[in-house]
Design a protein around this nucleic acid. Structure first.
Length: 176
DNA sequence: TAAGTGCGTCGTT
DNA sequence: AACGACGCACTTA
């Protein structure tokens, strides 16, 4: 299974690798832009995606931007430019949450409650957690900057170690 | 202080 | 109807 094509409902999705000091991430692109980012697999082995030689110019450009942004993020620096993000896979509520997450700048954190308030649904705290967990583009859509109200880490779908690492690179100290 | 229980709340499955 | 990447009040150790 080394095809770089996936089927995401109606449109084809292409997978491309991103090598970093932390391992190989995988970026998935729809016709609309970056639609998913996966952390390196546990053993760090390559997933079998190969750098396709015949990429459309737009896609190459998107992937270059993603690659740079991911590498910068791992150093704790904000990206200067991002590819278009295709967040259309989420529900309206999730997309609203993800938009709010993008407003949290590097080195800053918010609580789940603060995010809920920011989107005008102060009681939907737990649902915000759910939306964070469903974030298809971690790192670039910085769900790792959302902590529990007591400044503890809360959860992270890719594993708390990643959340700790990402925050540490941004200079954020956490309670656990 | 730290750790555990119960419950309100709401979007998702 | 059941389940969370929550948060708060309230026990217990």
């Amino acid at each position: 299974m080394q095809t770089a094509l996936k089927n995401n409902g109606a449109s084809a999705v292409r997978a491309l690798p991103i090598s970093t000091p932390e391992g190989e991430f995988t970026a998935y692109y729809s016709a609309r832009g970056l639609c998913q980012l996966e952390f390196p697999s546990r053993n760090g082995r390559s997933r079998g995606t190969s750098p396709a030689p015949d990429l459309p110019a737009a896609l190459r450009q998107w992937h270059a931007a993603t690659t740079k942004a991911v590498r910068l993020a791992l150093e704790g620096s904000p990206a200067r430019s991002l590819p278009p993000l295709d967040l259309s896979g989420g529900t309206d509520f999730q997309q609203t949450v993800w938009r709010a997450l993008r407003k949290i700048s590097p080195g800053r954190t918010r609580s789940y409650t603060q995010v809920a308030e920011a989107i005008g649904k102060p009681k939907a705290v737990r649902a915000v957690g759910g939306a964070c967990g469903a974030n298809p583009i971690p790192v670039l859509v910085p769900c790792h900057r959302v902590l529990a109200a007591d400044q503890h880490l809360g959860g992270f779908s890719a594993g708390l170690q990643w959340k700790r690492t990402l925050l540490a690179r941004e200079g954020v100290r956490t309670a656990n």
